[in-house]
Write a protein that binds this DNA or RNA. Structure first.
Lengths: 124, 124
DNA sequence: TCCAGACATTGACGGATATCGATATATCTG
DNA sequence: CAGATATATCGATATCCGTCAATGTCTGGA
């Protein structure tokens, strides 16, 4: 989609558009693909109830069963299940079946990765 | 532009079954309101193109003008403007007008805050 | 084998969001 | 003031997402 915004960034024509606004901008060190992956991670955390669930698990020190989560989150059981599934799909939680109950735990490595995504000069 | 997902609606059904599965779960240290704010931050980063823009600015060492961003992001000019507005609203970017051009820069403090949201036992 | 409980899946609905083209606003220049 | 350029806003649209009620699936116990 070559937008009609013709900006003389690359054209070094001496007399054309001044475009003196632009300083030499560092080349992006992130591909579109990486951006999509990273955005997916953040999207998993873009819901208040999922943030609540994650906070619940961060402060625990081990797997927590769904019934406990249901108590603390003001949502219907199917909706909680939906959110848990998303968090697992994003790699932020792990699921473990114990008899009738499902236990979820935090993937602390994935969580730690979050804080490093936007370190300058970092290759994700 | 209220909260995208209402968090404090009516409780669906008190799922307070005895359920001998549950170990004593640590009480949540995050209120619904905090969760909404945090989720808002992450939501601003839940779009691949916004991640791309932020990455672009992280690796620069100062304000960058829109025309530079337009070159690096495969979107129309209005759409880029839309994304920049969202990032500013989230507090992740600052905007500065320099004559005809608009320059955006990263709020590194807000960015650093991201990595600390889910530290165990951390209050916001 | 049948039942009850725990959790997941389905289907539908309403609201949010990304995207674009067209247009408006603002700023410099002549 | 008129024209050119940079950016924002508007209006429309297609898609995505959170939510729930209903239902399905699996496990353990009687």
């Amino acid at each position: 989609m070559t937008t009609t915004t013709k900006i003389g960034t690359e054209l070094a024509s001496p007399d054309t558009s001044p475009a003196a606004c632009c300083s030499p901008l560092a080349k992006p060190d992130m591909e579109s693909e990486d951006a999509a992956v990273t955005a997916g991670l953040f999207k998993a955390l873009s819901d208040p109830n999922r943030v609540l669930i994650l906070n619940l698990l961060v402060n625990g020190d081990g797997p927590v069963c769904v019934c406990d989560i249901n108590v603390h989150v003001p949502l219907s059981q199917p909706t909680v299940s939906h959110h848990l599934k998303k968090l697992v799909a994003a790699g932020l939680l792990t699921r473990e079946q114990r008899g009738v109950w499902a236990f979820f735990d935090i993937d602390r490595q994935a969580l730690a990765h979050l804080g490093e995504v936007f370190r300058p000069g970092r290759r994700s």
